[in-house]
Every structure is written in structure tokens, then in C-alpha cells.
Design a protein around this nucleic acid. Structure first.
Lengths: 212, 212
DNA sequence: GACAAGATACCGACTGGTTGGTATGTTTCC
DNA sequence: GGAAACATACCAACCAGTCGGTATCTTGTC
């Protein structure tokens, strides 16, 4: 651009320098969650992020590397959200666990169906047979989240006299399994309310365990 | 081939005439379950079925049409299997429901992880944002299966005095949700035993509902 | 604080391979 | 002999990834 030119706006909206990586990760979460990993092209991602292909491959060495980073980004984002949530303020462990289930149920009621899904859960099924790196990243995200539930579960079970055959780690994994399954049947029925119904059953199961 | 030539064996194994459609459907179930729909190419499917591309597009007008047919084929195959299963012979409705859960748990223990998944559940997540026809076919398969559980559930709940807030249709959908979620976390953990654990929790929930 | 020099961030045309799909020819069965 | 069931060659679009180049920032030196 010569010295005296007026600032010429670009035809395509472009993004400020230094933001490409973050915008690509955010766009990846949105687009991959809605359309799946292999149905999403690198060009799709670039268009959604307002970034060029050059920027994409400057920050990520491959589409697979972006997927791994997106899974970790998803885990960090949602992890921070759950860590800051108010369900931790319940007086008893059982109350905190049930409030967590309520929170998850609430978050399934507002947004459109395409948005109420888990990036890690969606990608782990797709990547299981094709990309060990993506599978590992998604698996770690899901199991890390399950682990954050274990302490309250162990305490709540102890308060209930430790019902035989029930342990906190497997119960935590069951809780995330129900959430993931709820996403699947919600898409099957094309109706978020069936996901909420499933969480109501999960809540009842937990209440029965804690109350008995 | 001139008249007089000896029967020349083909380099690639080819399949008897009239079997192409069935072999393609079977191959689709296997390959798509393992690698996902959009990661599976038409050529992959043809190779797995021992069939040429000409045969593929003779029987299916598009890859999407094959996916729809595969979802229906999956529903018919598994539907027949469950209809013929021995869990229907339980004396009480509660016993039949619990025996169904046991059957599903057993079927998660033998085969390799890639094989213990649901075609419809895997595809519905992937196709939700890209192909309404595939989504509908998968959704119908999943919800049809849930409906086959409703009669026993309604009877078992009635035997238990109809616990308040619990209805058979939503409980049936919850059961299939847990199964679908179990598949997801099994892949996340790369370990089928976490899927079985989840079914144990489902069984306990049902037993608590029926016994109270 | 000016300036050279290297490093980082980004651009976009291009490429080789793959994809879903087609056009047309051949075989088999009734 | 005609229709259904294939087979083969082919195509245009798309895809992940490359590469030579440019713009901006950082750092060391005086």
C-alpha cells in the first residue's frame, strides 16, 4: 500500500493480528459440534474464524492437530465454567451432586439442539477408529470431568452409609455417560426435552442412593 | 472374453450375482460403525463388500441413500435379535426388564471395543447437522427400539404401585440413553468395562424403582 | 529513541490426490 | 430379446497441505 492511500477496507472481514489461533479454536468448537469433524473442511474452519489457510497451518501442523487442540480447549473452557458454578455451594455433598445434575438439565433447555452437545463426546465416537490422538484428547477431557465429581460423590455415599456395590469413580463415569447418552437420544428424537427427562431419571437414581 | 477361453479367475474376489445389495448393507454396518459415516468413502464400502462402484450406484442412488438403508437394515437386524431373545421369558415384567439390561451388559463384554457400538447412535450425531434423511432414519431406529421396552416397563411400574413422576415411555428412552452413553464413555476410556459399569447402575436404578 | 536484523504472524495461489457421481459397455437371467 | 445386474473408465469438485512471499513485532546495539 503506497504512503498516502486511505485505509482500504478488505472485501472479506479479516481479524486482528495475534487472534487467529484463538478464533480458530472457538470456531472449531462451534462448527465441529454442529457438523462433525470429518464433515468439516479446513476451509470451513477458516471461513468461520475469519482467517486464511496460511494462518491455519501456521498455528496447527494438521487438521488433526487442530482437533486435538480444540478438544483440550473445550475441556479447559467447560472445566472453568463448572469450577466456577454455584452448585459447589450446597451444604451437603448430596445437595451439591444433585445441584450439578440440575445445572446440566437447565443448560439443556435454553439453546437450540445443535448447541446442546459435547464436543468431546461427539468427536470421540467419530475419531475412535481413525485418529488415536483425537480420541485420547477427547477421552481425557471426558474422564477429567468425571473425576471432578468423585469427591462429592464419595462423601455423599459415605453419608448414606456406603450402599454396597456402589463406588464413587464408577458412579461419576455413569453420570457423564447419562449426559452423553442424553445428547444422543435428544438428537435421535430431535427434541431436547428427552435429554432433560433422562437427567431427571439420573437425579432420581442418585436421590435414591443417597436417601436409602 | 472369446468363446473357448478357460474360466479366468478374477484378480479381485468378486461376489455372486444378486448379492450386492445385501453385502453392501452388511459392509456399511461394519465399516461405518468402526470409522464413521463421512470418513468412509464409497470406494471403501465397495472394497469391503467385494463389489464395484457400478453395483453400488445401481442399488443406491447416493451415499446418503445407502446410509439411510443401512440404518434401517441395522434396525431390522437388531430388532429381530431382541425380539427373539430369551429375556422375554421372564415370569414378571420386572424380571424381563432386568434380564434385558443383563443381555445388553453381556453383549458388551465379548467383542472388541470397535464392535460394541450402535450404528444408529454413532450416525445420528454425525448426520444431525448434515443430513436430515440419515438423522430421521437413525432416530426412528433408536426410538422404535425404546418403544419395544415400554410394555414391560409399564407393567413393572404398575406392579410396583406406579411410583410418582415415573412413566414408561420416558424410562424406556432413558434406558437407551444410558446404553448410548455407555458406548461413548467406553470409547473415551478405551475400555468396555466402563460401559458395563454404567449398565450395572441402570440395573440398580430399575431394581430400586420396581422394588420400592 | 533510532535503526538494523531476525523472528513471528499471516497471506493466497497452487498441487497432487481423493471423492461422490456418471456414462456407457457387458453379462446373466427369464 | 429385453430387462435387471453388474463392470470399467472417466470427470469435475473438493480436500488437506505446501510454498514463496509480505507485514508486523521484538530485540539487541549504540
Amino acid at each position: 500500500m503506497a504512503a498516502g492511500d486511505i485505509a482500504t477496507p478488505r472485501a472479506t472481514a479479516r481479524v486482528a493480528r495475534g487472534q487467529a489461533r484463538g478464533r480458530l479454536l472457538d470456531a472449531a468448537v462451534d462448527v465441529i459440534r454442529a457438523r462433525g469433524l470429518s464433515a468439516t473442511s479446513v476451509d470451513d474452519l477458516c471461513a468461520a474464524a475469519g482467517v486464511t489457510k496460511g494462518a491455519f497451518f501456521h498455528h496447527f501442523e494438521s487438521k488433526e492437530a487442530l482437533a486435538v487442540a480444540a478438544a483440550q480447549h473445550w475441556g479447559a473452557t467447560t472445566g472453568a465454567m463448572f469450577a466456577a458454578a454455584s452448585y459447589h455451594q450446597g451444604a451437603t455433598a448430596a445437595e451439591r451432586v444433585l445441584a450439578y445434575v440440575d445445572l446440566r438439565a437447565e443448560s439443556m433447555q435454553g439453546p437450540p439442539l445443535a448447541a446442546i452437545s459435547c464436543l468431546a463426546g461427539t468427536m470421540v465416537q467419530e475419531a475412535y477408529g481413525t485418529s488415536p490422538a483425537v480420541r485420547d484428547a477427547c477421552g481425557a477431557t471426558i474422564l477429567d470431568h468425571a473425576r471432578t465429581l468423585e469427591a462429592d460423590l464419595a462423601e455423599a455415599l459415605a453419608d448414606a452409609g456406603n450402599p454396597p456395590g456402589v463406588d464413587a469413580p464408577s458412579l461419576a463415569r455413569h453420570m457423564v455417560a447419562v449426559v452423553q447418552g442424553a445428547f444422543v437420544v435428544a438428537k435421535a428424537a430431535d427434541d431436547p426435552s428427552v435429554a432433560v427427562e433422562s437427567l431427571v431419571h439420573l437425579r432420581r437414581y442418585l436421590a435414591l442412593l443417597f436417601g436409602a
